[in-house]
Amino acid sequence: MGRLLAWRLSGKGHAITLFEAGSFDMPPGACHTAAGMIAPLSELVHCPLPVYELGLQSLRVWPQWVKELELQTGSPVDYRQSGSILIAHPQDRTELLQFQQELAAKLGTESQQHFQWLERTGLQNLEPNLERFDQGLYLASEADIDNRRLLPVLLTQIKRRNAQLREYTPAECMPGQIRHADGFEQFDCVIDARGLGAKKAVKGLRGVRGEVMVVETPEVRFQRPIRLLHPRYQLYAVPRANNQVVIGATEIESDDLSPISLRSSMELSSALYSIHPAFAEARILETRVNCRPATMDNLPVIEHEPGLIRVNGLYRHGFLLAPAMVQQVESTLQQQTLQVT
């Protein structure tokens, strides 16, 4: 969120100073841990309608922003709008029907235009490696982005625009000023996008633990994110470059940042293995744990006063909501500037 904001605002001529509590290469925020899905429909069953609407807005914005960024830097960020596929094992087929029912309940008849039932052949045509499955739902409009490519590319462009970059600088955000270990710094406006770092400043903000694994195998290839629906846990598998797949994610009501639990790794691994047995020989490259910043209603929040805008609570929807929230911050900032003028 912070980097996207800095990129947008620096592009509009604002002089930016970007603070990072950790390192820019391995930032501690959830954005570095996420799988980068931009999936408003898949998420609709887990979230209130405003998240879906903001997600649609983001989905419209992402392609243009990615194009601009790639042109500016010459570096691809692997944005892919190839849809996503939802599957369930035969004994859990009710989960697909339940998903369809929930979509219809929230979107009415409009829901029909957003998904397509796939039988075996259709499924195989899109994803040959889903040979164990006879049925699935295809959500053609959904997208995903490789966050681990996007974040450094954004930073490159922010640097080129002569922004001040300050890593390892945990800071407190106040109207018109930042306080950190070396004292106070004054600014026209402070934008607080610290996620859980702003826990004391944003009422009701909590952390929701998520655990993710990255595996590598040349034997199974997907073209788009796959979601396995199951009564007890949900698994997504997002294909990345170099035969890698990001799988996740648990959701535990806890601020706990300790390493992944054996149970979670078993649940994620076995769910992945159940999609295709060749995953048994996949190599586990990485496990990631982070806490998503969430409000009690799981909706994002923007609070503002003169000289300070706080944006937070993006929960499990960081990349889904980021452009829409950036646009709201831009609009708030513009209003503040007009008032000052």
């Binding site: 806890s254 601020d255 706990d256």
Partner: peptide
């Protein structure tokens, strides 16, 4: 069970 009760890291939601 899954909320690391030893560390009280789910305290916020428990209080809620």
């Amino acid at each position: 069970r899954r909320q690391s009760p030893e560390q009280q890291q789910g305290k916020m939601i428990w209080d809620y």
